[in-house]
Design a protein around this nucleic acid. Structure first.
Length: 566
RNA sequence: UGGCCGAUGGUGUAACGGUAGCACACCAGUUUUUGGUACUGAUAGUUGGGGUUCGAAUCCCUGUCGGCCAGCCA
């Protein structure tokens, strides 16, 4: 897909230096999601950075769950994340073994390490309440103040920590804290919590533990224990790196290198778990796999291939500056991918009946090319009869300037068929068009008119008796504003991002599609010629195909028309 | 206000002291039995101010703007 050579960025530069300096003699990365939500395209970037760096240096990649907080985590998410990761990394080669690791598998070793730290006098049991701890922590500008627990003797800490593990204290009664520096300008270093008491069912450990390690304590240990060389993460962890390093150095154990990069944002959507929940629970979308969602499940259902997502993330690149990619870039990747792969068919979204008055009732089968970009895709036969449907967009009783589709007295070419002239418009009593009476030029099958007439437009059509009625779900951006949180480039004065919801992000129409799609399977993708790319939705039932519009084709005419209307 | 980080066309990203390039978007064209695809061209950029240097997007100083941090979340 990508033709550029080995990508280079500040992370790869750093890895290369580490290899040359001998700091590491191999490369191992990991993607460490907490199983508390579905993966979205921002995670896809992170996975691809991790995977890509490992791949480029002949290393290995691991998927490891950071499952240290049982009250937020669930097996459902573990399964979904594994599934999405397999989809994204369609061909892991020998970079990823396809398996998942779990941070919780190291709980026992983490406990032992904690005991070591206590013995070194570098950790203590603290019985401050959350409120007291917050008050003691100070503020951004004011240093924190040490509490008396800080001076607890090692023996007492050992005993207390053991009793914490044994369940002798109530949830929240106390914590184990690292003894670092209550006055540090970096708040993360003001004696952070290493363990909290929390009686909750863990998806893997069950009720074995009642104390759970915090992120800062657990993360570096997991990386270390697993042999990670480069712990790549997003920018918000920059301030946590000193802590990551502190734990590893105090323990004197194998020390991976953490490097941070910016997370990926996308215009016309939102990218946080909280907002996903609100969208789903508020009924604004049908679920986490709604085709309008930026979740991998949603993109996949929408019909985006993982190859298109990979190309998008490759184009995004890696840096440390805040990154907001335009949705158009993603859509370009999708079109580029589908243009090569999707077979073409004809389908009408908003039908107008056409009676071709000089055609008999017999069916004529016309040969159609399946994919002009791929000769190997072959050809198919498309039936034409006296009655066909064309799209309402392709006829104007009163054509505007530059409109060169069908109108009274003008000619167009029927795709793969004949040149056709509109001779009469028949109206219903209500004034709406009932049907068009047209004539074809029998000499123009596969040939231009012999008298040199230029036919400017080719339109798609379907045979009335052969067409299959399907549901076509037409999707558009979920939000009308590029940044739903800052609709005019400024923070909202009132309301929320939900006010930017696009009321037309989903519409559904009855489409008439040529019969060749009748055996289409869920996930199959097509280009409906001149309209857009569609895929078969899992809601499809026998005899009732549901198509999702993945993305429209570029529409130059729509632009021209919009401009002249403006 | 304390700490950390960042700043190159509308968006994203290159240029690693030596011609500011690429992609998307936008605009104008060519080709076309998809107003698709492909192709061509145009517009548009180094955050301000100092300094070092023959030469600065790049190095130094300083200002401005932006992001993150005060969970027993990750």
């Amino acid at each position: 897909m990508s033709n550029s050579g080995t990508p280079s960025d500040f992370i790869r530069d750093a890895v290369r230096e580490d290899l040359e300096s001998g700091r590491f003699d191999r490369v191992q990365t990991r993607f460490p999601p907490e199983p508390n939500a579905y993966l979205h395209i921002g995670h896809a970037k992170a996975i691809l950075v991790d995977f890509g760096v490992a791949k480029d240096f002949g290393g290995t990649f691991k998927l490891r769950f950071d499952d240290t907080n049982p009250v937020k985590e669930d097996q459902e998410f573990v399964d979904a994340i594994i599934d999405d990761t397999h989809w994204l990394l369609a061909e892991p080669g020998n970079v990823w073994d396809g398996q998942a690791l779990f941070g919780s598998d190291h709980f026992e070793q983490m406990y032992l390490y904690a005991v070591e730290l206590i013995k070194k006098g570098k950790a203590y049991v603290c019985d401050l309440s959350p409120e007291e701890m917050r008050a003691n922590r100070g503020t951004l500008t004011r240093p924190g103040t040490p509490c008396e627990n800080r001076e607890r003797p090692v023996e007492d800490n050992l005993d207390l920590f053991d009793r914490m593990r044994n369940g002798e204290f109530e949830d929240g009664a106390c914590t184990l804290r690292a003894k670092i520096d209550m006055a540090s300008p970096n708040i993360n270093l003001r004696d952070p919590v290493m363990y909290r008491i929390r009686r909750a069912h863990h998806h893997r450990q069950g009720s074995k533990w009642c104390i759970y390690p915090s992120y800062d304590w657990a993360h570096g240990l997991e990386d270390s224990l697993e042999g990670t060389t480069h712990s790549l993460c997003t920018l918000e962890y920059e301030d946590h790196r000193p802590l990551y390093d502190w734990f590893l150095d105090e323990l004197g154990i194998y020390h991976p290198r953490q490097i941070e990069f910016s997370r990926l944002n996308l215009t016309h959507t939102v990218m946080s778990k909280r907002k996903f929940v609100e969208l789903v629970e508020g009924g604004h979308v049908t679920g986490y796999d709604d085709p309008r969602m930026p979740t991998l499940a949603g993109l996949r259902r929408r019909g985006y291939s993982s190859g298109a997502v990979r190309e998008f993330c490759r184009r995004a690149g890696v840096s440390k500056s805040d990154q907001t990619m335009e949705m158009y870039q993603l859509e370009d990747c999708v079109r580029e991918d589908l243009n090569r792969r999707a077979n073409r068919v004809m389908g009408v979204l908003d039908p107008i009946k056409v009676i071709i008055t000089n055609v008999s009732h017999e069916v004529e089968w016309l040969e159609a090319v399946n994919n002009p970009e791929d000769p190997a895709a072959g050809v198919r036969q498309v039936p034409m009869t006296k009655e066909i449907f064309i799209d309402a967009d392709d006829f104007r009783a009163d054509p505007p300037p530059k409109y060169h589709r069908l109108s009274p007295g003008t000619e167009v070419r029927l795709r793969y068929g004949y040149v056709m002239k509109c001779e009469q418009v028949v109206y219903n009593p209500d004034g709406l068009i009932k049907e068009l009476l047209c004539k074809i030029d029998p000499e123009t099958k596969g040939a231009n008119p012999s008298d040199g007439r230029k036919i400017k437009a080719t339109i798609h059509w379907v045979s009335a008796v052969h067409a299959i009625e399907c549901e076509a779900r037409l999707y558009d951006h979920l939000f009308v504003d590029p940044d739903p949180d800052r609709p005019n480039g400024r923070a909202r004065e009132s309301g929320t991002y939900l006010d930017s919801l696009n009321p037309n992000s989903h519409t559904s129409v009855r489409a008439l599609v040529e019969p060749s799609v009748q055996d289409a399977k869920t996930g199959d993708t097509f280009q409906f010629e001149r309209i857009g790319y569609f895929c078969v939705d899992p809601d499809t039932r026998p005899g009732a195909i549901v198509f999702n519009r993945i993305v429209t084709l570029r529409d130059t005419w729509a632009k021209i028309e919009k401009k002249s209307n403006a």
